[in-house]
Design a protein around this nucleic acid. Structure first.
Lengths: 223, 223
DNA sequence: GCGCAGATTTCATCTGGTGAAATAGCGTTG
DNA sequence: CAACGCTATTTCACCAGATGAAATCTGCGC
């Protein structure tokens, strides 16, 4: 965003997209925060947010923060991947729920999208300090636990672990979901790094693997 | 879209949104078709689509048609889980699933948003001819089955029905979900009008009511 | 009261979006 | 194979419309 060599094809349009992306990646935020995040003057930011609000792409809450609105929901149709993804999400939801309840940490489902891992669904953990809000967010494949899981080329390996790869203080345990001879998705357990020290996570690792196996079975049955 | 008296706050930005909306509502399309649909000159349309493509909000296929791309889906997915309604959605999802399986028709959850009813979540029916794609869509409260359900002021009434109110050929059965003394949402069963004649839908009406009751219980327990 | 941190309005400036027209490519028809 | 129709693409002179610095307003804490 900062310095772009690419010639501007359409400034206001790009900035509008910047704002939507900022909201999707960083969650709800107020005017100035958004302005800073996107590097757009506040007055201009306000004008754009007004348009987005009017069209219901974002909503303005009581406390003057902006959230993505109903119109953004409609983007989830008319794509081949959309259908596949929603099937995946539906099938895995309650396995994630189970994993979250068992471990207390937030459980995610991720798929590969280009050269990134994209978090598709979640069941939030039960502890008061827990991981939230990464659904719809993409992280690199290299150097992350999810990434390693998605890039696996042998089934039945151990789970993948990582501490502080994407964001300092975030720990992860991840396992691949195989269907036929390909990895179709990955389960990922996320929480504060302090609770993900190797010594403490033996049970969780088993639970993550079990969840991956269960989802594999669900998928196999339904296709 | 055609003639709008509302003062333009940002032409190119709005047109970019127009294009995304057109793609979301009408599915993949080529340059000229999109240009016509949005009432934008083709050269301008092309320029905008280039920006969107570069940013992976849309993708250009082999045959020169454009589809919504991964970035757009990410936004939708994020919105689905992060929005204000996430608890409601999570709680109702599997009741909707059940209703869809029992009746074969698509089951929706809707909430009131201003003076409209907004479809939030769905479980698709099992028949080949079924209702799809209304998640994120808003319909008027007046004269629709969902609308009547959301405007109810006495619990425990019969379900609401309608044929062809929003779109010709779409039939609906809808029941309110009460929490405390307020209607918080509504279940809506949608399908082809031909399958929604009063004579044939006795069972479905019961199923819709039951689903509404079940969701009420889930919500009550978890709050 | 004062100061601070946001949100909002204003408006002179000029950039960056606009779109008609011309060009190129492609399949089809006589 | 020339002529036609349809779609994608490029160009460029023009000026509507976006821009953002500065001023103002609003609410909150002290």
């Amino acid at each position: 965003m900062a310095s772009n060599a690419t010639l501007h094809a359409s400034r206001s349009a790009e900035r509008t997209l910047d704002l939507l992306e900022a909201l999707a990646d960083a969650g709800p935020a107020g005017l100035t925060k958004l302005a800073r995040a996107t590097d757009i003057p506040t007055s201009t930011t306000l004008r754009h947010l007004r348009v987005l609000t009017e069209r219901r792409w974002v909503e303005r809450r009581e406390d003057d923060t902006y959230v993505l609105g109903p119109r953004a929901l409609r983007l989830a149709i008319h794509t081949e991947t959309a259908a596949t993804w929603s099937r995946l999400r539906a099938q895995s939801q309650h396995h994630l729920q189970h994993l979250a309840e068992e471990t207390g940490e937030s459980a995610y489902l991720a798929v590969r999208s280009g050269d990134e891992a994209l978090y598709l669904a979640t069941a939030e953990g039960t502890k008061t300090i827990r991981h939230v809000g990464w659904v719809g967010r993409a992280v690199p494949l290299e150097g992350t636990a999810v990434g390693e899981a998605l890039l696996e080329n042998e089934p039945a390996g151990p789970p993948h672990r990582n501490l502080g790869a994407v964001e300092i203080d975030v720990g992860a345990i991840s396992a691949a979901i195989w269907l036929g001879d390909r990895v179709v998705a990955a389960v990922s357990l996320l929480g504060p790094a302090s609770r993900f020290e190797p010594a403490d996570t033996h049970d969780s690792e088993g639970a993550v693997l079990d969840t991956a196996r269960s989802i594999e079975l669900s998928l196999r049955d339904s296709s």
